[in-house]
Simulated assay, not measured.
Amino acid sequence: MKPSQTSGFVSRKKEEKERNFSFSNSSICQQEEKMSAGAVWYRLSLLVLMPDVLLWAARISCRNEAGEAVDWFVVYKLPRYTMNASAGSGLDYMYLDPSSRNWELSRHFINTSQSALGQTLDQLYRTYKDQENSTAGAYMIYNDAIPSSKNYSTRRGHTKGILLLDRSQGFWLIHSIPRFPPFPEQGYGYPASGRRNGQTAICVTYTYDQFPEIVTQLLYYNPNVYNCSIPHPFQQALPNLQKMCLGSSLPWITVKHLTKLKSAGGENFLHFAKSHFFVDDIYVAWMAQNLETDLLAESWQLQGQDLPSNCSLPRHVYNVKEIKIPFHSYFYSNYDHSKWCVSWRYEDQWTCIGDLNRATQQTWRSGGFICTQNQNIYKAFRGLVSYYKSCNVTN
């Protein structure tokens, strides 16, 4: 099934090494006679298990910079301008996955195919090229700012992300980067407009049975889909994914929806999704109260448009004003286009990453956040907070 386009929206060697064996038939027989029954069984078991190992390696999942499958990863693209440093490339990024305890500065730029985003999205490009295959996976790409366009969609959700899945598993990548990624036929790339400010992305691998719930969350997003392909086998199991792909009428939704998700590796997540009917600050009115924790919130804060720190409800939200990175530098929030928050109390250990800024004009926009109590994710993000503004004083 080829993706179709309407008004700028798309509905969406091995080389075999030769080895020369000089065993004669008699020597082979002699070796077989000496081989114990246990050794024979061991070799046979390897042959039986090998297809499963190869299948696991081939499954769609988030990928690290070596192209290896990971359960999840987080990327924090650093802004071009930081304090106490000359202008950078705007392409450096920090990386975190289950194998690391804290941020690692990547050796690769984010615009290269060797980056974690590049390695992960390579699976998307291979799926795109294999669309005629009946076993090809399904994908959907959405962004309120589509590539090669200067316009932003205010009619749809303020959301950005990619879904890619087969009938076994897939990933959901949530990010903050406008005009990213390029259309699949163009291959991997990173927009020049994404260099100036900081950006975040979180990728989580899910088994197939999690995707009906993910699709439900996306209904609340009302995402601006610009490229997708939903082969026939997925249309029956995930009909609303097909409707979003085609731009068809969607089922009626309520104001907001909270759900539990579990990664393929067993990591627990909470996902908050609000529709445009929820006209309020998602940080204060919902997330902080539901999680029962005060939050330190980092989002793009343009002067005159940002919401102040809020202590009007039992659980408070404080705006982060300055970010310190582990490599002896700092940057201000107005150079950061990312959207995340962490528990003020270290004991609560909540981290949420998502779509919406703390801004007046975004109280009526749809979008959401994925939240986790993973200890290493919390420590990594909590350690970035240099100072924040409480309701009465800066800390």
Score class of each variant (00 low, 15 high):
Gln119Asp: 06
Tyr388Met: 08
Thr120Gly: 00
Leu295Glu: 02
Cys29Lys: 09
Ile141Glu: 11
Ala359Tyr: 00
Ser24Asp: 07
Gly367Tyr: 02
Ala116His: 03
Gly157Ala: 13
Glu65Met: 12
Asn319Arg: 01
His175Asp: 01
Arg196Gly: 12
Leu49Gly: 03
Leu105Asn: 01
Pro181Arg: 05
Gln305Lys: 04
Ser106Ala: 13
Cys245Leu: 14
Phe171Asn: 06
Phe369Ala: 02
Ser61Leu: 00
Ser115His: 07
Val385Gln: 03
Arg19Glu: 09
Met287Trp: 07
Glu292Arg: 01
Val255Leu: 11
Ile282Tyr: 02
Ala288Asp: 09
Tyr188Met: 01
Ala116Asp: 04
Ala359Asp: 13
His337Ile: 13
Val317Lys: 00
Ser7Glu: 15
Gln119Tyr: 11
Lys129Met: 15
Ala285Met: 11
Cys203Asp: 05
Pro223Lys: 04
Asp52Cys: 12
Phe278Thr: 07
Gln301Leu: 08
Asn392Met: 12
Cys228Ser: 15
Phe171Ile: 06
Gln30Lys: 09
Asn64Ala: 06
Lys34Gln: 10
Gln131Cys: 10
Tyr332Ile: 15
Thr360Asn: 11
Ala201Lys: 12
His328Asp: 15
Pro251Asn: 12
Ser113Val: 05
Gly189Gln: 06
Ser22Ile: 02
Leu238Pro: 04
Tyr346Asn: 04
Phe234Glu: 11
Ser45Asn: 09
Ser249Gly: 08
Val385Lys: 00
Lys129Arg: 15
Gly187Lys: 08
Ala85Glu: 10
Leu250Glu: 09
Phe234Lys: 01
Ala37Val: 03
Leu96Ile: 08
Asn290Gly: 04
Tyr42Ala: 04
Arg167Glu: 14
Gln30Asn: 09
Met287His: 07
Tyr188Asp: 00
Tyr42Phe: 12
Asn143Phe: 04
Thr254Phe: 11
His108Asp: 14
Gln30Pro: 00
Gly118Ala: 14
Lys389Leu: 11
Leu163Val: 05
Ala359Gly: 14
Ala201Val: 11
Ala66Asp: 02
Leu91Pro: 00
Leu105Ala: 02
Asp336Thr: 08
Gln186Met: 13
Asn197Ile: 03
His158Trp: 04
Ser338Ile: 11
Met35Ala: 10
Tyr188Ile: 00
Glu292Leu: 04
Leu302Phe: 14
Val255Gly: 02
Leu291Tyr: 05
Leu295Val: 09
Trp364Lys: 07
Met1Gly: 05
Ser89Pro: 02
Thr360Ile: 05
His337Asn: 05
Trp344Lys: 02
Asn227His: 14
Asp144Cys: 01
Met83His: 13
Val74Tyr: 05
Thr127Ala: 06
Cys228Glu: 15
Asn197Asp: 09
Arg19Thr: 07
Trp340Arg: 00
Asn222Thr: 07
Ser11Gln: 08
Ser100Gly: 11
Asp355Leu: 03
